[in-house]
Design a protein around this nucleic acid. Sequence first.
DNA 1: CGGTATCCGAGATGATACTG
DNA 2: CAGTATCATCTCGGATACCG
Lengths: 127, 127
Amino acid sequence: MATEASNGDRFIFENTEDCPIRDVVARFGDKWSIIVLLALSKGSERFNALKRRIVGVSQRMLTRTLRQLEREGYVSRVVHAEVPVRVEYSLTELGQDLIKPLWALIGWAREHHDTIREARDGFDGRE
Amino acid sequence: MATEASNGDRFIFENTEDCPIRDVVARFGDKWSIIVLLALSKGSERFNALKRRIVGVSQRMLTRTLRQLEREGYVSRVVHAEVPVRVEYSLTELGQDLIKPLWALIGWAREHHDTIREARDGFDGRE
DNA sequence: CGGTATCCGAGATGATACTG
DNA sequence: CAGTATCATCTCGGATACCG
């Protein structure tokens, strides 16, 4: 992230794998991760149930997103050996913890959505 | 965002332009936006000074990122008609406000960075 | 049911060269 | 100094078809 370095009284922003912005935040800055995390915030759910609730997601992208979130340690995947197979997804403790600052951000976005739209319209109007 | 709908006791997640996740959060989920916002958090700065501090950014991407942030209303761009020209970038009030929930998120990422890395290693080790 | 495999188009990013 | 233009590459995301 913003690696602090005594470069006068300034920072140097690096772009290494040690940067939490690159290595953590940017990983759920994609199209579906945040939505999937929120979708799981109420409790565990099966694959197709999730898919139905998250309108617009393709099977491929839901699978990929869940795998990534599982890899980061935010989501837990449990396969029940039944016929047909049942797969339950849920948030881990880490995932539930991540939800908190995420909600703050989304709350902010909600609150300022109109302001931002006006800014865009103004900007586009000038050019 | 998570549009609340009384669908049983569940949510429906839509993917429209009215969704603040899509329309606000995803816009600074790109590679440079958050870093640029943080770089400006200390005060106004010139283009090339920014470019030097943000190690690894190309001129093209810095320009594009700044334009986007300006369009959203987070960044202000002031051109001083001198020779050579001087362009100062700074955060608007909205931009400074956005920084707050952003810091919370980055603080979280910093704090859990090691945990997440271990989760990844564990996941990759299993497969 | 819960995936995987394959293909494709669009956009993000970067390198390089040029300009008012 | 602060860009723009161009090209090349890579990843994201969607559509479709198939599988245990």
